[in-house]
Computed example of a mutant assay.
Amino acid sequence: MTAELLILEDKLTRLTLAPELGGSIVNWTLHNSGHALLRHSDQQALQASSPRRLACYPLVPWSNRIGQGGFSSPDGWFDLPANSATDPLPIHGSAWQQPWQVIEQSASEICLQLDSHLPFAYRAQQRFRLHDGCLQMHLQVTHLDARAAWHGLGWHPYFPRTAHTRLRAAAQQFWQCDQSRLSSQLAPLPSSWNFTQAQDLPSEQIDHAFTGWDGSCQIIQEDAGYQLQCNSQGADYFILFTPSEQNFFCFEPVSHPVNAHHLPGQPGLRLLRQGQTCQLSFSLQYQALPLG
Rank of each mutant, 00 (worst) to 15 (best):
P90Y: 15
D178F: 09
Q173H: 12
E104R: 04
L130A: 11
A170Q: 04
L153D: 10
H117C: 06
E104W: 01
R147M: 14
Q197I: 02
H92M: 06
G93L: 02
P160N: 12
L144K: 15
V102S: 03
A149M: 07
S106K: 10
L153F: 14
A107Y: 02
P160Q: 15
A187I: 09
W150Q: 13
S184V: 13
I91H: 03
P188V: 04
S191P: 03
S106P: 04
E204T: 10
D115L: 08
Y158G: 01
R127T: 09
E204D: 14
D178Q: 01
T142E: 15
P202Q: 11
N194A: 08
Q98H: 13
D200T: 04
S191G: 02
A107D: 11
D115N: 08
L182V: 09
A169Q: 00
F128Q: 02
A169D: 01
A170F: 02
C177L: 14
Q97L: 07
H92K: 08
D132K: 05
R129Y: 05
Q136G: 10
D178S: 06
D178Y: 05
I91T: 11
Q205W: 08
Q179R: 11
Q199P: 12
L167W: 02
L89E: 03
H117S: 05
P90F: 15
A170D: 06
A169T: 00
L118H: 00
L153G: 10
I103T: 07
P99Q: 07
N194P: 06
P160A: 14
S183N: 06
D200N: 12
A121H: 05
Q199F: 05
